[in-house]
């Protein structure tokens, strides 16, 4: 009898694993199937998986579209500058919060904590009005500045990492007369490679995937980013799902590659769920 229950238990778990895998991977496989098939065959017989395969033709068609490469270029420019500015402002802030004790520190902590919770739909409206007035409307710089301001989590990622560094490293260096700048560059940065990588990838993901801010800030075709291009693609090719899928797969390659490189490098460190809010 005991064995019977165990078999039932195992079967239920197996059934759950299979359903979960279908739910997780089914949608992705469906998209992959559409992306490699001939558009007309998808339209006629969508259920016949992997029939009439055209290989990478759809992908080449997408890349030959006049604007696709421009979208990728813009996304890269915005992401790279956002990473640079975010790191430049969050590393000194994190150093200050880790190393020093000073009046009003808790107030500053609160000011840095709260922004991560504010939905961008709320702060984007005033920021948009201010940018319009400052002549920054409809520029890539608007995107870069807006996304560089999302440093709450990045600062804390660095703080928790700096706290794990032995404090006598700092003290010895200070006693020997090193300046704080020197400590940051010569001691902290070389030790903080994992934190730098994790932070860069988080910032990259945020700005590479940003849709809503791009929808508001970027109006001209030659400064639009990949998510915005994808969104317009749905309208332009509303029946040709093969091209839409192909573009979609191209758009996620950078994030997926970076995510798994980081995952390999850092093992479980990224799985600290709080970093994902």
């Amino acid at each position: 009898m005991h064995n019977f229950y165990r078999t039932i238990h195992k079967l239920i778990i197996l059934f759950f694993i299979l359903s979960l895998m279908t739910f997780l991977l089914g949608p992705l496989l469906w998209m992959a199937d559409i992306a490699v098939r001939n558009p007309s065959s998808v339209e006629k017989e969508p259920g016949k998986l992997f029939q009439d395969i055209t290989g990478i033709d759809n992908f080449i068609h997408v890349l030959r579209e006049e604007n696709t490469l421009i979208y990728f270029k813009n996304s890269f420019i915005i992401s790279v500058f956002t990473i640079l500015i975010s790191l430049a402002i969050s590393i000194p802030a994190a150093y200050s919060l880790t190393v020093f004790r000073f009046p009003l520190k808790n107030l500053f902590l609160a000011i840095i904590t709260v922004p991560q919770f504010i939905p961008s739909i709320i702060n984007i409206i005033p920021v948009y009005l201010i940018f319009q007035k400052a002549g920054l409307g409809n520029t890539r710089l608007a995107m870069i500045l807006f996304h560089s301001s999302r440093v709450s989590l990045i600062i804390w990622l660095f703080v928790s990492y700096f706290e794990s560094i032995q404090k006598n490293f700092f003290e010895d260096a200070l006693i020997n007369g090193a300046s704080h700048l020197k400590i940051i560059i010569k001691i902290i940065m070389p030790l903080s490679f994992p934190a730098l990588a994790a932070a860069s990838i988080q910032i990259f993901n945020g700005s590479w995937n940003a849709f809503f801010s791009a929808l508001i800030f970027l109006l001209d075709e030659d400064i639009k980013t990949v998510p915005l291009g994808l969104y317009q693609f749905i309208d332009r090719y509303n029946i040709n799902y093969s091209l839409i899928s192909a573009f979609n797969i191209l758009s996620v390659i950078p994030t997926i590659v970076l995510f798994y490189l980081l995952k390999l490098k850092l093992k479980n460190k990224l799985e600290n769920g709080e970093g994902f809010l």
Binding site: S90, F102, I112, N123, S149, V151
Partner: peptide, 20 residues
Amino acid sequence: PYILLLPALIFILSFYVAPL
């Protein structure tokens, strides 16, 4: 410490606090 915090504070004040 305040100088080191300043850039981050400027960004947060001008993109979150002031807009609200």
